[in-house]
């Protein structure tokens, strides 16, 4: 897959992401017409497919994929279209053909998203109390999986050491918020 696009998704390069997202949208809506989806559903599916594409980029999965980004994106979209058609078929008076079409874009399976546990939902409350810069620092480190060096370059920090100490300060603040709440509760 095109490495520079995968990097752009990982690092939130908005101009490139916008170019990709808007660039394939019309094509995807055209592609989805063959499945007789409502336009509203097709737009929602395209958005969900693109969000899934980004998740796969962040997880590192896309670096091993040989197909083009467009083929992969449409493959995810195809998977989500089949899922939606199954939902349609459960509704009365609507029975679309679930015959899977081969060729064109190969379906890409998507694992269902895990719901946050009770413990994580509680942690989310404290995470939201952090300042935006700490939220971003922790997101870049632990979800996006960027190294301190990469964060330093992306966010314009003086050095990798500054990132390390800033991250450590943010983690301490988060843990203190949790601890204080337990002490007061």
């Amino acid at each position: 897959m095109e490495q520079h696009y995968v990097d752009a998704l990982r690092t939130d390069d908005h101009p490139i992401i916008k170019e990709l997202y808007t660039g394939y949208r019309i094509d995807f809506l055209g592609f989805s017409k063959r499945y007789k989806l409502s336009e509203e559903d097709a737009i929602d599916i395209y958005q969900e497919a693109f969000i899934t594409l980004r998740k796969h980029a962040i997880s590192g999965k896309l670096y091993k994929i040989e197909s083009s980004l467009k083929t992969y994106l449409f493959g995810i979209g195809k998977h989500l279209i089949y899922k939606k058609l199954k939902e349609y078929s459960l509704k009365a008076n609507y029975t679309p053909s679930l015959q899977k079409e081969e060729g064109f874009y190969e379906e890409v399976s998507v694992d269902p998203e895990e719901e946050l546990t009770q413990e994580q939902l509680l942690l989310k409350r404290y995470f939201n109390l952090l300042g935006k810069s700490c939220q971003r620092m922790l997101t870049l480190s632990f979800y996006r999986g960027l190294t301190n060096e990469e964060i330093s370059k992306l966010e314009g920090y003086e050095s990798e050491a500054v990132v390390r100490s800033q991250k450590s300060r943010c983690l301490k603040t988060l843990k203190d918020l949790i601890k204080n709440s337990k002490d007061n509760g």
Binding site: I17, F50, L116, T117
Partner: peptide
């Protein structure tokens, strides 16, 4: 757990961006 939480928040923000 922090990874899961920041993933959920980040995805929500990305959706708003799109």
């Amino acid at each position: 757990n922090l990874k899961a939480v920041s993933k959920a928040e980040d995805t929500q923000q990305f959706k708003a961006t799109l």
